[in-house]
């Protein structure tokens, strides 16, 4: 990710899934499929983020691995859904950076579940082939380091694109762990044995916890850090689902992320272009004034 040296800090995009829910026509079960049936809606989400100030946008391919698409009988469209997603993102990005999103299988692998490691590997190989025209691959919402390693190897088997990995941690009384029981140190140790270009955290339980996590990571690695927190745990207000961490609430925290070495800052579930606008405002201060 040589481009990273060109600016002090970079602005990622915000949520895709929760934005699509508001914009897409009708109900949909598979957000990745919208790349084929409603590409204009996906394009609009990307454009909104570019307008809000994103330097990097991410393809609408979080769940577009072979096995996950199979649940919707779309497995034979794995390549097409991913390749089309890259085209749509490129269209919106102009000269901006496009990251290829790869999320988890959504099922447990052996010995805890039915999926074999080989099946998982092949599932991500199919996805990686479709994403070959992006600037880098972002493996995100990692909840199992074994699975992340399989995704990493699957991407590497297809091409030499730069790869970043962001993990979702849960806070316990003993600190932050993945649901599989892996700590931040476990992640950094493992990730440094892979040839990756950036590490970080995404989703989780809001901006405050995300900040705590990146502060721990900063002590453990010199790799560029990525933070993409969600806007807290959603609540029901007057019949609508709302995320509690609104743009004005997160503003005081953004500077702290950048002060703690976060190189790329965006948002996950429940964040929208308004969150990105705030992040951009602070990023601009750092890039141009500071």
């Amino acid at each position: 990710m040589h481009f990273l040296n060109k600016q002090k800090v970079w602005v990622f995009d915000g949520a895709m899934g929760t934005m699509l829910q508001n914009l897409a026509c009708g109900n949909f079960n598979c957000p990745d499929e919208l790349n084929l049936s409603q590409p204009d809606v996906v394009l609009k989400v990307h454009q909104e983020y570019i307008k809000a100030g994103s330097d990097i946008i991410q393809t609408n391919t979080f769940g577009a691995n072979y096995l996950r698409l199979k649940r919707f009988n779309l497995e034979n469209k794995t390549y097409e859904i991913n390749a089309r997603a890259v085209e749509i993102a490129r269209n919106a990005a102009g000269g901006k950076i496009v990251a290829g999103s790869i999320g988890p299988l959504g099922e447990l692998m052996e010995p805890y579940g039915e999926i074999t490691k080989e099946e998982a590997f092949q599932s991500f190989v199919e996805q990686a082939k479709g994403l070959s025209e992006v600037d880098f691959i972002n493996i995100e919402t990692v909840q199992s380091l074994d699975e992340a390693e399989i995704i990493f190897k699957a991407v590497r088997s297809v091409n030499k694109l730069p790869i970043s990995v962001t993990v979702t941690f849960q806070k316990t009384t003993r600190g932050y762990f993945t649901i599989m029981g892996e700590s931040i140190i476990d992640f950094i140790n493992r990730a440094t044995s892979w040839d990756i270009h950036a590490v970080g955290t995404n989703c989780g339980e809001g901006f405050k916890q995300s900040l705590e996590i990146v502060c721990e990571m900063r002590e453990l690695t010199k790799l560029p850090l990525i933070a993409k927190p969600n806007a807290g745990i959603p609540e029901l207000k007057d019949g609508n689902i709302i995320y509690p961490e609104t743009p004005d609430l997160i503003e005081p925290l953004i500077e702290k992320f950048f002060n703690n070495c976060v190189k790329i800052m965006g948002g996950c579930c429940g964040t929208n272009p308004e969150h990105i606008r705030i992040i951009k405002k602070i990023a601009n201060k750092i890039n141009y004034d500071g």
């Binding site: 447990l108 010995p111 316990t172 649901i179 599989m180 029981g181």
Partner: peptide
């Protein structure tokens, strides 16, 4: 108490 995680529970 965060002493074990999903893999242990599943086993």
């Amino acid at each position: 108490d965060g002493l074990i995680f999903l893999p242990e529970v599943l086993m």
